[in-house]
Nucleic acid binder design. Structure first.
Lengths: 268, 268
DNA sequence: GCTCGAGGGG
DNA sequence: CCCCTCGAGC
């Protein structure tokens, strides 16, 4: 059986219900992880997800900002909540589906100045990576676990439109790349979209709203990720190669999120 | 030839372009006077009006608030601008079409407390009526002139859902009714919608957004008016009776203004 | 309720 | 450029 896992920073789930329904109709994810739902749990449009066949839902919401959710075709088992957000924001929600633990994150963007000492948002971002890395380091790599979401780091030189220009910009500074790499090493995580679309091909999942024509300028970043433990390697490579992609056409829809969904398939 | 003159407080012309286009398609006004366009002159969606056959436009706009405009199928001649708004708001625009002078107003709502001494908005509203009445008093009643717009007064007891309850509420207090009556007397103006739909029939042009179902509660007010001088009486009664109406169905459209358009026909 | 402005965040 | 929070105004 195929399990399709998708992650999407929807930038307000209430404003994007139609686009989410269309994406689920067209791509049939079995589990959809969302970030920046920007609502409280009670404001989440549950009926729209039930209507589209994803009735099992876990939500970590707050008023107006951040917020993450997981909607699933299959029943969800609870998992122990992680304590990785120093500021108490709704940036993390977990679920276990078909024996696979899924941890869904919206990691802080980190502000403009890439200096922990002067920019508390940047400090919070690195602290989030450190807490998460420490949490993962105590786990069994053979347990099937996926870390997904908007991690707000473009980890490789082909994950940004210009490695040189972006190296000074928050999301692609050396210190963030190291933080991402340490997280990845903690459990020997596998980067599934990159396994499916290897470097040096450029791969982006986010394009700024500010560009008039995002296709033309194509100044994108790969901020949205699906990382899996060695315990999921066989399931991810069931058909010989990894099956994962960025749904960049979604970025062209009416009133889009600035992020495109990212998906990976597992044989379970 | 029939000249149809319509007035509509659109509550943001940029947000309401589709509804305006639909109204013009369905009702074919020759002159459409709008209030609360809520934009500057350069932000006015001219192309939409050209597309729908009203290419001749006069605009008095300001940033974000108030703002009035006249769009016409026939060419417009300029008229001398009136100085009736003490605060310098964009609340008045004039035009001459087919020999008829049209003065289009968005008179101040007047705040909550019906007392000039303590409420400067109420004072401004009465001052606006006084200045306008004085201006009209110096004119020739036989010159064809129409005063239209959101005058923010429901002038008669059948122009409100409850005369008793509304008599303490700004828009229907005795002092406002007197101000309206003095304006009407200044040139012996004729109230065309009332001539077409006589008292005691209730006639409203505005229903609050706050009512869940405006038809059911029907707590409306007649705030939008078409007043004409004796010089236009024959044209307005060309077919024997006055032809004027409130397009209350428009209040039921998707994302409506809280005001319905009001129209009157002239034989010219 | 609905639409603005201003301010924060991305 | 887009989306949130507030608060004002009607």
């Amino acid at each position: 059986m195929r399990l399709r896992l998708s992650t999407w920073n929807v930038n307000s789930v209430r404003l994007r219900v139609e686009q989410v329904a269309r994406f689920v109709d067209e791509q049939a994810p079995d589990v959809l992880c969302m970030q920046e739902i920007k609502c409280q749990e009670g404001e989440f449009p549950r009926a729209a997800f039930e209507a589209v066949g994803l009735p099992h839902i876990r939500i970590a919401g707050q008023k107006g900002w951040h917020g993450v959710a997981i909607a699933s075709r299959l029943p969800i088992e609870d998992v122990a909540p992680l304590q990785v957000c120093r500021e108490g924001h709704a940036r993390c929600v977990g679920a276990k589906v078909a024996g696979v633990e899924i941890q869904n994150f919206y990691i802080p963007a980190g502000g403009d100045i890439p200096d922990r000492e002067v920019n508390p948002k940047f400090d919070h971002k690195l602290d989030f990576f450190e807490k998460l890395t420490a949490e993962m380091a105590g786990r069994d790599p053979k347990a099937p676990l996926a870390i997904v979401g908007d991690l707000n780091v473009a980890p490789g030189e082909f994950d940004v439109w210009s490695h040189k220009q972006m190296s000074k910009i928050v999301s692609h500074t050396p210190i963030e790349l190291e933080a991402f790499a340490r997280l990845k090493s903690s459990l020997d995580f596998l980067d599934l979209p990159r396994a499916a679309i290897p470097e040096p091909e450029k791969l982006f999942s986010w394009w700024s709203y500010r560009a008039a024509d995002f296709r033309k300028s194509n100044r994108g970043l790969r901020l949205d990720h699906i990382l899996v433990t060695p315990g999921l390697r066989d399931a991810a490579f069931r058909s010989g190669a990894a099956s994962a992609r960025v749904h960049d056409d979604v970025r062209e829809w009416e009133r889009p999120s600035d992020h495109a969904p990212v998906s990976a398939d597992f044989g379970i």
